[in-house]
Design a protein around this nucleic acid. Structure first.
Lengths: 198, 198
DNA sequence: CGATTCTTTGAAAACAGTCAATCTGTGTGG
DNA sequence: CCACACAGATTGACTGTTTTCAAAGAATCG
């Protein structure tokens, strides 16, 4: 099966679960998308580059992260199949990104240039509404993450994480969970040992 | 001067700086808004209540915060004049809010019920676009705050804060800045002393 | 002023981070 | 198929930062 057809069918299922589209609209959206396959550890975006796309993940897992002066990575977000990735700030301002995005697993991504994406939003109001609803959910999730980051202890952060994303923890190295939670891998290891004892 | 007229003129100036509206549209928006004056420390929203509005601050300063089991407050966000406040999660889900919103200074707020707000969004596409642009900026700010929360030391958090919001720090108690940064007031006090020595 | 609130300071304790070594599991090439 | 290499996880000892608790010192406001 043509990979574009297969990948797009995943996106199509995603769209149809959220909004109603005519076959012509679907075909139009499809015509404006293109595929990118990423091997594990391959970059989708590197710090310093300008991000100009909207990326929908059909399979796999990506991470968005910063690297500090000491070379430590801090994961801002994960994005798995049926979710979006990108740097909205770089996209909006045109400034070079301060984030890196790379593949945690071999992944397949559907890309839209920003101008094509905006075209779709203008032409298909339901699509625009969907995009705004996603943004709203993303914002709410961010608020909750901020609350966890400034209120919780290391243990609470971990327990909250596995409760919120059950199953996901087994899919990625623990050191990445630590990086996402803002603690060291060693601390996470100790916290896990103590939690299981209870 | 009628307080509604005065307050609305602030909102009107805000709107006209962002979008173009006809006098009739402005009048329509005005007719769907209502005033709330808040004395310092007065609640706009209490934990457990369902939030059903969109609040635009014309003067003053509000804070959104959680209270943990120990009774400690954790500030999720500040909102000053010409900015918005509310709990999008409670609004979207209809669930009781886990946040409190109260006035840090005597404040004046313009309120729209969610249904009236959505009506305006539907009737005036430019207004809807403006709302989405604000949401986008809010999301970007949240991402940056998450990055600071998981990457920075206490001192870096403070320096980043005063750099990002110059002047604002003098407007609120330092203990609230500490609460916003996720550190204790004592630590902030010490960090400030050390920073000024340098 | 006096009362309240906020900030600063000190000393001790708790927590998380660092560095280094060991252990575990996985996958690859000989 | 085994042995090895590698990446990731764990553990220990130590260090450093931040918190906690308590008290004293400013600042603010009625």
């Amino acid at each position: 099966m043509d990979p574009l057809i297969k990948m797009f069918s995943i996106f199509e299922a995603y769209l149809q679960q959220k909004i109603t589209l005519t076959p012509a609209e679907l075909e139009h959206i499809k015509s404006l998308s293109f595929i990118k396959k990423l091997r594990k550890k391959q970059y989708l975006l590197q710090e310093g580059d300008v991000w100009k796309y909207h990326a929908f993940i059909t399979t796999g897992c990506l991470r968005t992260y910063t690297v500090d002066e000491k070379g430590l990575e801090h994961i801002i977000s994960f994005a798995i199949e049926n979710w979006w990735a990108g740097d909205k700030e770089s996209l909006l301002t045109g400034e070079p990104s301060k984030f890196n995005i790379d593949a945690v697993e071999d992944s397949e991504v559907l890309l839209f240039t920003n101008s094509n994406f905006e075209l779709i939003c203008r032409e298909i109001p339901a699509f625009n509404n969907m995009v705004n609803a996603i943004l709203q959910k993303s914002f709410i999730a961010s608020q909750n993450r901020i609350n966890a980051a400034i209120s919780y202890t290391a243990e609470e952060k971990y327990l909250n994480f596995i409760h919120k994303y059950p199953g996901f923890a087994t899919r990625i190295p623990q050191s990445m969970i630590a990086s996402y939670l803002g603690i060291t891998p060693e601390t996470l290891s100790r916290v896990r040992n103590q939690s299981t004892k209870k």
